[in-house]
Amino acid sequence: HNGKLCKLKGIAPLQLGKCNITGWLLGNPECDSLLPARSWSYIVETPNSENGACYPGDLIDYEELREQLSSVSSLERFEIFPKESSWPNHTFNGVTVSCSHRGKSSFYRNLLWLTKKGDSYPKLTNSYVNNKGKEVLVLWGVHHPSSSDEQQSLYSNGNAYVSVASSNYNRRFTPEIAARPKVRDQHGRMNYYWTLLEPGDTIIFEATGNLIAPWYAFALSRGFESGIITSNASMHECNTKCQTPQGAINSNLPFQNIHPVTIGECPKYVRSTKLRMVTGLRNIPSIQYRGLFGAIAGFIEGGWTGMIDGWYGYHHQNEQGSGYAADQKSTQNAINGITNKVNSVIEKMNTQFTAVGKEFNNLEKRMENLNKKVDDGFLDIWTYNAELLVLLENERTLDFHDLNVKNLYEKVKSQLKNNAKEIGNGCFEFYHKCDNECMESVRNGTYDYPKYSEESKLNREKIDGVKLESMGVYQILAIYSTVASSLVLLVSLGAISFWMCSNGSLQCRICI
């Protein structure tokens, strides 16, 4: 991952900044910058967002509201009850120091605090018919004063009620008058409520006091790749198909172990950190130390980045220098085999997901714990399936590479015959000098055995068991695999060879 928040398929997220979902939807004055928000790819909250409900109280069923919003990608904020005409018999300019803005008392931008007009609070009834052709999110509140005197001074009615009804919602609220500790300079409380109004449905408000009335509502448009994440990451000019709280993932790998919460087309989250597919040879310690064997393909974004291909070729060293050249036929066979294998694994496992966190309130801790156990169970199954699949494929890959290298080895052996000696570690020792032209003939299969047989015969008789390297004779190393990324691999195959001279070296080696 890149540690950044990015656009998702070209669409920017909605960053709530210092506000949370509650503050944004109710219209906390400190969240005025969010009022123009219309569309987004996903919503970003920060872990310690401080601006929620400015007048103390709870947004009821907040967790369910977050779940609903996680599939919303755009909205239209509109005046559901026009301020100047909807409440002619009531005062609608209630403000509070708890919702101060720029040093002055204020109130929510989407709600109206209705109080008595003169000395009376006549029963009010108002309704709205949803003609938007889509779901409408309606929010309101109920004020709970701290004393009967406060109730009387604001609403005149000691036994007030609030009723809200639609086809799918029907509740009646009565204020709970009680002494409470002071929070944000208030002994009173406000509880906030919401409902989704279906197209064509009607919502009716009736009250004799204590109503925090809707002013603006939201017509919602769903987008199934949307979601809500909690993150401290910063926004950058970048684009992605998959976003996590820790950063964007741009990967076609089937798995990731970065974060379980994802938005967009994302690899499946697994616990494993070692889900690797081999593309090189079986481990040979001396070669492995030099980083030549054991190439791997990573299938977990965050564990290993991208696929690494092994390729086969020849390396030689003689009086004229040293050089490398790919054996294109065996390399292409290996590439085709690995590509098919990788595609097979991805096809089997690479279903892209959006995974969002589930919200539970403080009273639902047991449910949250149960949900976590269920999620953990599914996660263990996914991890096991992934590891088992790759384990089985790896064994076949190792066998496949062994065969490829063996074929190259036999190709060289059949040409050199007794003009060189096998020394048991995949290397041959020449009994004759071999210049670049000679080396090329070994690589392309045109090695002239009779041409060098007499010199080889004489050297075999002279050496008589002495280690060949100390006599200045020449080696050919018969097994060799270097490691390159897919891009470098293609470039390498396009070149005939490249040279690395070893000044004054008397050794001649050709490596497979």
Rank of each mutant, 00 (worst) to 15 (best):
K358I: 11
I258P: 03
V466W: 05
S322W: 02
Y452L: 01
T397G: 04
N362G: 06
L489C: 10
Q320M: 08
K373N: 11
L506D: 00
N407G: 06
N404A: 13
N361G: 15
D464M: 10
Q328W: 12
G337Q: 15
Q415H: 08
H259V: 04
F378G: 11
A233N: 08
I284K: 15
S231L: 02
G291E: 12
K417Y: 04
E440M: 10
F293I: 11
F378C: 08
Y431V: 01
G306R: 10
T331I: 03
N371Q: 09
K348I: 15
I512H: 02
S486F: 05
S272F: 05
R366S: 06
L398P: 02
H432N: 00
D309Q: 10
C434H: 02
L506Y: 00
F498V: 15
D448Y: 11
K433N: 06
P254W: 06
P267S: 01
G323D: 09
C434F: 05
A420C: 05
S234K: 07
S272E: 00
E359T: 12
N340E: 05
L275K: 03
K433V: 12
N444L: 12
H236G: 13
A484V: 10
C238Y: 10
I335E: 02
L506K: 09
C501F: 13
F360A: 06
V270H: 02
R282E: 11
L408C: 06
S502F: 08
E395N: 03
G294M: 10
F353Y: 15
Y314V: 02
I381E: 07
G298R: 08
Y409T: 03
Q246W: 11
S470K: 12
N503L: 12
F498N: 12
E265I: 10
I346N: 05
L363G: 04
L379A: 06
W499S: 00
L398G: 08
N436H: 11
N418E: 12
S456V: 11
G494F: 01
N250Q: 11
Q328E: 07
R460T: 12
I512Y: 01
V473Y: 14
K365Y: 07
P267G: 13
R443E: 15
P285F: 00
S492Q: 06
